[in-house]
Design a binder for these strands. Structure first.
Lengths: 105, 105
DNA sequence: GGCGTATGCCTACATTGTTGACATGGCCAA
DNA sequence: TTGGCCATGTCAACAATGTAGGCATACGCC
């Protein structure tokens, strides 16, 4: 089945946020800064890999002539966006009506 | 670490919604109806169990004198509510600003 | 050339997700 | 009463996801 995990959603959204600058260390920093939770480097690489093999991410190695070591940059194809939406929608549906307990938003 | 998974959050929220009527089959039905995704019976029981051993859920066997077979009813203690909030908050933080891509709400 | 650092990739293991089988207890019809 | 049926609970096994930390390599700098 195509249900994706919570951390996977976080990674996917981080890639979206970073737009053209989404390479592993940046994704990691983005998640740590925004959520306050600490993330190991390995977790990020592995998850990016797995998402790519599921077709939820696409990557390309940056051209070397831009200076510095080569980096692998990621993008989220339409299929990935749909996956995020589906997961978020399920959460929304369940959350609906629970504002008194869980707080607004 | 105390990060909980996506399905666990769904289960926890279903228990909250059902208030006093949260026993496994009802939790399952609630999730299937609200999210449209199909859930196996075993997944629900196992997940309820694991959440209880982490202290994120509490359960009691219903008195038999109410007729019918005994059922195990669940409730979400404060610790469980906090866990849901934390996970949802992380998602919110990452989602913030992505409305143009992911849609509102 | 040698060192420090940033990046990528991998291995190993823990936790969570999922399925299907088996057990048990009450209900109903014969 | 007994036998079958259904709803509920529990378990064992396995698949997918989450996490930590190590190794390798390439670049800049001294």
């Amino acid at each position: 089945m195509s249900a994706i995990g919570e951390f996977e959603v976080l990674i996917l959204m981080a890639v979206l946020r970073l737009d053209r600058g989404a390479y592993a260390p940046a994704v990691r920093a983005e998640i740590e800064q925004r959520t306050g939770r600490s993330v190991s480097r390995g977790a990020v690489y592995i998850t990016l890999d797995r998402l790519e093999s599921k077709g939820l991410l696409l990557s390309t190695m940056a051209e070397a002539d831009e200076g510095g070591r080569q980096r692998r940059y990621y993008q989220v194809p339409a299929k990935g966006v749909r996956a995020i939406k589906r997961t978020l929608a399920a959460l929304e549906q369940m959350r609906d009506g629970l504002e008194p307990i869980l707080g607004k938003a």
